[in-house]
Simulated assay, not measured.
Amino acid sequence: MDLIAEINASWGWIGLNATEVVGENDFGNLIVKDDESRYWRIFPEELACEIIAANRQELDLLSNDQEFLQDWNMRVLVSVAKEALGELTENKKYCFVIPASLGGEYNASNFKTIALVELIRFSGDLAHQIKDLPPGSKIKLNVE
């Protein structure tokens, strides 16, 4: 399955109909253009996906926003992950073993590498399963 198809299969439930990936970072965050020319950001570590720009002009403004760029580049986390796990190989990304939104820590002991497609699939599917839970709910992950 190609990445666009995987994005739509895993995150389409939120209203995203992806047509193009326009950016990605080392933790598998993606900036995705949809069929209405809006731009979304997928945050696998937060189990989140949201519109960040209504059009290309807004995206261009974001690309000059230092706060956005600092968050997007995740330089400190990438440096920690690279030191602990080494350089990324082709189609691999760093990831949180336990997503931050579920209490996973922002440190090397909670980082692994994973194929980008698997990260998008896992984060979208898990986000969908927990979307209706109230904040602070306890969950149990069963990994097979």
Results as ranks from 00 to 15, higher is better:
residue 37 S to L: 11
residue 22 V to T: 13
residue 104 G to P: 02
residue 64 N to A: 10
residue 46 E to Y: 01
residue 68 F to D: 12
residue 94 Y to C: 06
residue 114 I to Q: 05
residue 78 V to H: 00
residue 118 E to F: 07
residue 43 F to R: 09
residue 56 R to Q: 14
residue 69 L to G: 00
residue 20 E to I: 13
residue 137 S to K: 14
residue 93 K to N: 04
residue 80 V to S: 00
residue 90 E to N: 12
residue 31 I to C: 08
residue 132 D to K: 04
residue 38 R to F: 08
residue 41 R to Q: 15
residue 7 I to D: 03
residue 35 D to G: 15
residue 73 N to S: 03
residue 118 E to W: 01
residue 129 Q to G: 06
residue 132 D to M: 05
residue 66 Q to I: 06
residue 132 D to I: 06
residue 50 E to V: 15
residue 138 K to M: 11
residue 142 N to H: 15
residue 42 I to A: 05
residue 59 L to C: 12
residue 88 L to D: 03
residue 110 N to S: 00
residue 134 P to F: 02
residue 121 R to D: 03
residue 11 W to F: 12
residue 97 V to T: 10
residue 29 N to S: 09
residue 131 K to A: 15
residue 44 P to N: 02
residue 48 A to Q: 07
residue 59 L to Y: 12
residue 41 R to H: 11
residue 131 K to H: 08
residue 125 D to C: 13
residue 18 A to Q: 06
residue 130 I to T: 07
residue 106 Y to A: 14
residue 13 W to V: 13
residue 105 E to K: 10
residue 31 I to T: 13
residue 126 L to N: 00
residue 51 I to R: 10
residue 43 F to G: 01
residue 42 I to S: 01
residue 42 I to T: 08
residue 59 L to I: 07
residue 127 A to Q: 03
residue 139 I to T: 15
residue 15 G to T: 08
residue 63 S to A: 02
residue 36 E to Q: 15
residue 41 R to K: 14
residue 45 E to T: 04
residue 110 N to F: 10
residue 47 L to A: 02
residue 113 T to D: 00
residue 103 G to S: 13
residue 102 L to W: 03
residue 15 G to F: 01
residue 27 F to K: 02
residue 50 E to R: 14
residue 15 G to W: 02
residue 140 K to C: 12
residue 30 L to D: 04
residue 57 Q to Y: 13
residue 30 L to S: 05
residue 29 N to D: 10
residue 58 E to L: 05
residue 54 A to E: 15
residue 64 N to R: 10
residue 61 L to V: 00
residue 21 V to F: 09
residue 12 G to P: 11
residue 12 G to W: 05
residue 5 A to E: 12
residue 9 A to W: 04
residue 55 N to P: 08
residue 53 A to E: 10
residue 44 P to E: 01
residue 72 W to E: 02
residue 135 P to A: 09
residue 47 L to Y: 05
residue 20 E to D: 15
residue 144 E to N: 09
residue 32 V to W: 07
residue 90 E to C: 09
residue 134 P to M: 07
residue 38 R to E: 14
residue 1 M to K: 09
residue 72 W to D: 07
residue 66 Q to F: 07
residue 23 G to T: 00
residue 85 L to N: 06
residue 86 G to C: 09
residue 124 G to T: 14
residue 25 N to Q: 14
residue 117 V to M: 01
residue 1 M to T: 15
residue 130 I to M: 07
residue 131 K to W: 03
residue 12 G to T: 13
residue 30 L to P: 04
residue 6 E to M: 13
residue 27 F to S: 04
